[in-house]
Computed example of a mutant assay.
Amino acid sequence: MTQHNILLADDDIVLAEMLTEYLQGEGFDVTLVHNGEDALEASKSPKDMIILDIMMPKMDGLEVLKAVRQTDTDTPVIMLTARGDDIDRILGLELGADDYMPKPCNPRELLARVKAILRRASTSGKASSSQSDLLNVGDLEMNVHNRQAKLQDEVLILTQTEFDILQLLMQSADELITKQKISEDILGRKLGAYDRSIDVHISNLRRKLSQSTMLNIQTVRGSGYLLNVKRDAA
């Protein structure tokens, strides 16, 4: 079995070494760094997952994330933050993070989230063996096997989580998908009472689908979202 390579960047040496030891014990190959500049340099070699602390010396995690996403939208990123303010978490998601966790984090919970995100990436292509590789909804086309989406023949730049949420919405177009289902199926965890991560991912998708003449993501207040298709559009 292929060993997944994880980049872990955190200036809390004690916590970072504990998380590294735990992840290595679960079979992951972990590259550990303690500042943003080293994190950015290490990210230039292929990684299956990046875990970034927000508060780091030299470059903070948000700066690193922004730089990484300029050239790499595929590698999943989980942000770690000790701050109680939601602003940093929301900004991280807007910049392209796939998920976040507050510090100090439970190693078992972090492991569960890492596995859930990696599992989605590995099973998307496999699922296509029993269904069509292509999803077509309105003016949006998705190749599940190649993990590529096109709007009006233009390739959409999506993070892994955005792709997975969009796939879920396309597979059930015009049907309500609850926030709980999105959180459990895509992020691998139950939706917390004040968790806005799904809302931010949906906001990012709306912006990227804004040129569509046939589709829009509707909010069903208190429940979830649905991909609305204007089937009578020209």
Rank of each mutant, 00 (worst) to 15 (best):
Q3G: 05
N5A: 15
L7P: 00
D10S: 10
D11T: 06
D12M: 09
M18D: 10
E26M: 09
V30R: 08
V30H: 04
T31P: 01
L32H: 02
H34T: 13
N35Q: 15
E41C: 06
D48H: 12
L52Q: 01
I54H: 00
M55L: 13
M56K: 02
L62C: 08
L65R: 03
K66C: 05
K66W: 04
R69E: 05
T71N: 12
D72R: 06
D72A: 07
T75V: 15
V77F: 07
M79Y: 02
M79L: 15
L80D: 00
A82H: 03
D85T: 06
D86Q: 07
L91I: 12
L93A: 04
E94S: 06
E94M: 12
L95K: 02
R108Q: 08
L110P: 00
L111G: 00
A112D: 09
A116S: 09
A116L: 08
R119G: 05
S124A: 14
K126R: 13
A127F: 00
S129Q: 12
Q131I: 04
N136D: 10
V137G: 02
E141R: 13
E141T: 13
Q148L: 14
Q148C: 12
A149P: 04
L151T: 02
E154P: 01
V155P: 04
I157C: 09
T161V: 14
E162T: 04
F163D: 08
F163T: 00
I165R: 00
L166A: 03
Q167M: 03
A173W: 07
D174M: 07
I177D: 00
I186F: 09
R189K: 11
K190M: 14
K190H: 13
G192D: 05
S197E: 08
D199A: 08
V200D: 00
S203L: 09
N204V: 08
R206H: 10
K208I: 09
L209G: 01
S212E: 07
L215V: 11
Q218C: 10
Q218N: 10
Q218R: 07
G222F: 13
L227D: 01
A233G: 06
A233I: 10
A233H: 09
A233T: 14
A234K: 14
A234H: 10
